[in-house]
Computed example of a mutant assay.
Amino acid sequence: MGVFSILGVVLNILVIVVTVRHKQLRQPLSYALVSLAVCDLGCAVCGGLPTTVTTAMGYFSLGRVGCTLEGFAVAFFGIASLCTIGVISVERYIVVCYPMGAVRFQTRHAIAGVVLSWVWSFVWNTPPLFGWGSYELEGIKTSCAPNWNSRDAGNMSYIVIYFSLCFAVPFSIITVSYVRLLWTLRQVTKLQVSEAGRTHRVEVQVARMVAAMVLAFLVTWLPYASMALAVILDSTLKIDPLIAVLPVFFAKSSTVYNPIIYVFMNRQFRNYAIPTILCGWNPNAPEEDTSDAEPTVASSYKSQRDL
């Protein structure tokens, strides 16, 4: 947990710093990617690192207020992250499925989507702070989360609404967007090589990167969500704490995957990130401008505008 948390902090800070420093990376998609990096950074700092410390100590040492604050922070950043991925999936759907500009996803749309994601998460994670629902210890009692186990009517009503609006709705948007997107990509692969076809391949590469990020998020968070839903639906279900903690730790490790995927699957970002890490030295500099075959985020939008 400590290794993943520290890596999550370092890599997500790298994504934020590199994107802010280089205006070539400031495309509509990048606003959502930076928002996602901020969410992952928040989860690592407010969830992963405290959980590492309290688990090493063997008990939760932050008190009742600390439990509430940690549970709120992790839930807030986690749901904002899921909603942001929903925004990214819609953006990819629009760009890939409407490449000729019939529907345009612009910077203002990306910013609006990011703001809506954060506001939506804040609205639905604050009720436990005022008595509707609660944040309680979970698993081996070294971390806190929304109280899935209480059968109190008020708590149950909150959890059911929370799960429906903060997980089911974003998950449905992601699913619908990517089903349509994958169907379009299947059609794109049948096109002959042409200028339009090359532009489509640019979009396809970026779409694959985002699809990997979506898949990584869902794979890490679905076990936790499934466990919580099972506990909600079956009041007699008892899960051993050592088993229950596995989805918790697995979910909190998700903060490291998105920046890794972004760095390794985006050549343009990699060309800016490597000099940042190596204090200005870029071992790939001599060949970075010799080929335009590999797509980038910026070239994706440039090609779309050119069309």
Results as ranks from 00 to 15, higher is better:
V263M: 14
L182H: 12
Y224G: 03
R180N: 15
I173S: 04
M265P: 02
A168S: 11
T184N: 08
I260F: 07
P275M: 01
V176F: 14
A168L: 15
P223K: 05
Y224S: 06
M227E: 08
T220H: 15
T276W: 08
F217G: 08
A228N: 10
V204A: 06
V206L: 12
A211K: 09
A273K: 01
A211Y: 11
H200A: 10
K238T: 12
G197N: 08
V248Y: 09
A273W: 01
S194G: 01
I239N: 00
V245D: 07
I243V: 10
I274Y: 04
V245G: 03
M227W: 06
L191T: 14
K190L: 08
A230K: 10
N284L: 14
V206D: 07
P247G: 03
G197Q: 03
F171T: 12
F264G: 11
N284Q: 15
N271G: 13
A211V: 04
Q268C: 05
N271M: 12
Q205A: 15
D289S: 11
T255K: 00
V245N: 07
E288C: 09
Y257Q: 06
F249S: 04
A207R: 02
S226I: 15
S254V: 04
F167R: 07
I261E: 02
A207N: 03
L182V: 15
R201P: 06
H200C: 08
L278R: 05
V231W: 02
T236G: 10
V256L: 01
I261V: 07
